[in-house]
Amino acid sequence: MSTSNLTRLVLLALIWGTSFMLMRIASPVFGPILTTFGRASLGALAIYLFARQRGVEFHWKKNAKTYLVIGLGNTAIPFSLFAWSALHIPSAYMATMNSLAPIFTAVFGFIMLGERLSWLRISAFVLGLFGVAVLVGIGPVSVTPLVIAGVLAGMGASINYGFAATYTRMYAKEIPSLATAAGSQFAAALALLPFALPSVPHAIEYGTSSALISVVILGIVCTGIAYALFFHLISTEGASKAVTVTFLIPATASVWAWLLLDEPITPGIVAGILIVLIATAMSLGLLKKLPFVKR
């Protein structure tokens, strides 16, 4: 990977790492759905303007169904689940659940595409669940029903990411990636609109500047700019290298939350993150080059 793209990769990890902390700030004020709606709307606008500048064609009518399914699976549902989990679990927990996405992508590749699910990937799935158990069991937060629900919501978000990634491979091959990104964000925002409206009066009355700034950053930076960086990495380095950003996000999310929200970084968090990241590496096939790993 070139030095410039390595810089972009680190920058992307820093940006996406902040998203969990920002949800921890915005969701208690605006609510999970309105927070997600604001993020999707601003993200859609940012990506759309960038895509139009590059002459990308959207073919809205033709691709409406694809945009909607991807928008629900990759944005509306998982963003809402993470925004809800932000009410109950630390940023490091959410970022670790996010790292499970490649594992669930492999599972959906088996279910929807009939791809071979090797013993290595099955082991990765089991190890990933074990990592989550370690994180929750010896992490800094007491295990309560709401904490467990928050963790399950984060896992649900990753399950949706896995489905959306597989669906995109199946039905969005002919659509420019930036068009898919912008179109799916617009579809997500429209789907969320009727559920977000009831929260508007509360947001107007009790909204804070920090929560509003958090939503703006979530939309423009963590969604709009981040997508531009991610798709640039995919186009220049390939998807397999771009997805390695997954390994950096839990660390950056933990550091941001430690610096700005005083969330602790404990041995339990470190252990859980490491186990999940090893499982993710197994799922992505990054351990195949090691001599002790069977092909």
Rank of each mutant, 00 (worst) to 15 (best):
G238H: 02
L233Q: 04
A211H: 15
M112P: 00
G55Q: 04
L284R: 03
E174T: 14
S283A: 02
T96W: 14
N63M: 05
P264V: 09
T75W: 06
F108T: 01
G207P: 11
G43S: 00
A203V: 13
L22D: 06
F79C: 01
L233M: 12
S214I: 12
G71T: 09
S91V: 02
K241V: 10
V143S: 06
Y206W: 12
V141A: 09
V245S: 04
S214K: 14
A257M: 02
A239G: 04
A124T: 05
L193W: 14
T36H: 07
L129N: 14
A226S: 06
F292Q: 12
K289S: 15
A281R: 00
A271F: 08
F37L: 05
G71C: 10
T223C: 02
A189E: 13
L286G: 03
H59S: 15
I249P: 01
E237I: 09
R8Q: 14
T96I: 11
L9N: 13
P194D: 09
F20S: 02
W16L: 06
T7N: 15
A179I: 04
A92L: 11
A253V: 04
Y206F: 13
G17A: 00
L284T: 08
F230V: 07
F230S: 11
S283T: 04
L11K: 10
G285S: 04
N160A: 12
I273L: 03
L274V: 13
A181C: 06
I249C: 01
E115C: 03
I25D: 03
A189Q: 10
I70F: 10
F79W: 10
A203C: 12
L218D: 08
I204V: 15
L117T: 06
F104I: 01
F110E: 11
G154Q: 02
L284W: 13
L192C: 06
I15V: 02
M155D: 00
T180A: 15
K61W: 10
C222A: 11
T168Y: 07
M1G: 14
Y227F: 15
F230K: 08
F30Y: 13
I148Y: 12
D262R: 07
G219V: 01
